[in-house]
Structure formats: structure tokens, C-alpha cells
Design a protein around this nucleic acid. Structure first.
Lengths: 141, 141
DNA sequence: CACTATTATATCGTGTGCGATTTTATTTTG
DNA sequence: CAAAATAAAATCGCACACGATATAATAGTG
């Protein structure tokens, strides 16, 4: 049979599998602070800079607005962020952190170490992985 | 602020982003043969060997049965596979290819080349990526 | 300045993805 | 051999993820 159509020959499948494995590693750790992985990513974007427009957040995370809008709504329902129409341009929705959202950063400080520990891989492999993936990601987009 | 809580410092985010980018590259190519990416993976597993139990397929793709059962049902509804209870052990469901499912392999033969072309990355980078990801994936699981 | 094009977000439908629970069948054990 | 444990699938609920479409506001144009 066509060797290229075997799962073992696939290059992309390991990336797909690793991505899900990563989310599975994060899940129990993020559960302690009541966040999902995509929600954690949004929080990181906002902890770094706020307010930000819906599409600014979506662009940074490569998520289209069919994904980001309901994601932000769930986060607003949890009280982590607030949504405000820009008065100059009523099309724009500005996303800000609530007090509760800001305070979550302290609790989240332990997440990175916990994840590295749970994944059980060396920082060297991690860095090598990141460099290579970023290189390919930039080429592919 | 905590450097580790910045998106730029994240190692896992690029993997997550690349995984979705890969699925997005596959989407229009697989659409021509009416498959989604997870469905394509199931087909590859079955083209290589059939019949297989539901959990055998799930184990190979690292998908739990909350995912794999509805996935297989949609594929059965499309007429790609058939589901048969094992007569020796009525708990087991054997998944086989239909004639239509077997014939799809010929049409799918062009998929790998199309994907490599659409991603626009070198085979060398791809191989290096695969080796590294597989190494980390094996450690993480 | 009305008309068209563009932009920002929201909505809808379909398909994953996974934890938790349930159902049914087989295996183990007292 | 009956009761408990285990195993294989299925089911349920929730949260993405994305294409396609809709809605509303602003910008551009003749």
C-alpha cells in the first residue's frame, strides 16, 4: 500500500497528538483556577496589555471570531473580563480585565512550573521544540 | 510582570497554534474527498489494517471513546465504514471498511503531496519536527 | 450627500474533544 | 455458581474551532 498513507509516516499527526496532550496536561492544573487552556491564553494576552479589541486578541491567538466571541462571552460570564463598546467607533468592543481577572494572575504564577513538571521533559528539548515549531509556523501562515 | 506568564514565552502555544494551522491546511484538500482531518486519520488506520475494534482505533489516535464513538458513527452514516458486534464478545464493536471506504484510498493518494506543497516547508524541517515531537510525545505520555 | 464598500463583531451549524456517567457483557472471586 | 469487579461502548454535557452568513457602523466615492 501507499507508504505515505500510513499513520506512522505522518508528520502532522504527532503535532496534532502533542497539541492535545499539552491541553490534557494543562487541564487539571488550570482547573484549580477555573480556566480552560484557551481561556488561559486569553488571560495571558490581557495580563500583558489591556484593554484590547476582540480581533486583537483573536489575531494574537490565531482564533477567528466564530471562536473568540463565545470564548470571551464565557469569560465575561465568569466575571474575569468586561466588554465595552468603543464610543468613538461603535463597531469595536474593548475587552478589559475585571478586578477578579487581575487578581487571578497571582494564582496563575505557579502554572508554568507545574506544567513543565507534569510534562516531564527537559527545558532544552522544550526550547528546541519551540524554535522549530515557530520557524515552521511562520513559514506556513 | 511575570515573564513566564507572557504569550511570547510560551512553549506550548506554538504547538497548539501549529496543530490548528495544520488542520486548516488539510481542510480544503480533504474537503475534495469529503473527509475531516480526524476522519482522514481513522481512514489511514483502517486502510492499513481492518477490521479493528473501536478502542484499537482510539488508542492509535489517542482519542477517548467519547470522541471516537460519534466520529465513527458519522463515518458510518457517510457509508465509509461498517460497525459489527463481535459474536464471541458482544461488548466489542468491529469497524470495517465498506467498498466505498476502500475505494477512497485511491483518491486520497494525492493528499500527502498536496499538503506538503500547501504548507510550503522543506522536507528536512518536517522530518526534524517529527523526530522532536515524537520524542517529546513519548516522554509526556 | 446618498450609495457602495469595508470593517468589527455576532450568530449559526457542524464536527470534534474530553470528563463523567451509564449500559451491557464478560471475567474474577468467594 | 452468584456477586462483585472489570471491560467495551455509548451517552451526556460543555467548551472549543471554524466556515458561512448576518448585522451594524464607519469609510470611501462619485
Amino acid at each position: 500500500m501507499d507508504e505515505e498513507l500510513k499513520l506512522k509516516s505522518q508528520v502532522c499527526f504527532p503535532v496534532y497528538a502533542l497539541s492535545r496532550e499539552i491541553v490534557n496536561v494543562y487541564r487539571p492544573i488550570l482547573e484549580e483556577i477555573d480556566l480552560t487552556y484557551p481561556q488561559y491564553l486569553v488571560m495571558m494576552v490581557l495580563w500583558e496589555n489591556e484593554p484590547q479589541k476582540v480581533n486583537e486578541i483573536g489575531d494574537k491567538l490565531n482564533l477567528d471570531n466564530g471562536t473568540i466571541t463565545p470564548l470571551l462571552k464565557r469569560m465575561a460570564a465568569k466575571g474575569l473580563i468586561s466588554r465595552k463598546r468603543n464610543t468613538k467607533d461603535e463597531r469595536v468592543v474593548e475587552i478589559s480585565l475585571t478586578e477578579s481577572g487581575k487578581q487571578l494572575q497571582t494564582k496563575a504564577a505557579e502554572v508554568p512550573q507545574k506544567v513543565v513538571k507534569a510534562m516531564g521533559i527537559t527545558p532544552e528539548d522544550l526550547m528546541q521544540l519551540k524554535d522549530l515549531v515557530v520557524k515552521i509556523l511562520n513559514r506556513a501562515k
